[in-house]
């Protein structure tokens, strides 16, 4: 670009003032977003919306199991029953050794909780 050409392109102060004034007026002329356009843009946004990055919260197995068993009271009862079963199996195996597994269940129950079952009483008293 030659200096003469630069001089040719340079605006006079008057020209600059006129243009600046015209630009200022035209700046004020702005289109508003119509409700229709806003609706179309938002519809696109919702349709293109990525899946939520945070997966839905799922409770772990243990809390759900505890809830199904009746809460902490149910859990304690279940644990106590399990411990009793283990004790019966190891400490008093001879009490039920003669039980026919195919006989009536009442026989087993009566044998386990018969007050005459002295070894159980001794265990309770002596620990």
């Amino acid at each position: 670009m030659t200096k003469n050409h630069e001089d040719h392109e340079k605006l006079t102060r008057a020209e600059t003032e006129v243009l600046d004034d015209l630009f200022a007026g035209l700046r004020e002329r702005r289109l508003d977003i119509s409700p229709d356009l806003a609706g179309r843009v938002l519809a696109d946004a919702f349709e293109a919306s990525p899946a939520p990055s945070i997966p839905p919260v799922r409770s772990s197995l243990l809390p759900r199991l505890a809830k199904a068993l009746g809460g902490w009271r149910g859990g304690v009862a279940l644990a106590s029953s399990a411990m009793l079963g283990v004790w019966v199996g190891y400490a008093n195996a001879d009490l039920v050794s003669g039980v026919d597994p195919f006989s009536d269940g009442d026989v087993v129950t009566e044998t386990l909780f018969d007050p005459s079952a002295t070894r159980f009483d001794e265990y309770i008293l002596e620990g």
Partner: peptide, 9 residues
């Protein structure tokens, strides 16, 4: 928005 918040859109 990328995380799923449509109010940001």
């Amino acid at each position: 928005y990328a995380g799923g918040d449509q109010s940001a859109a």
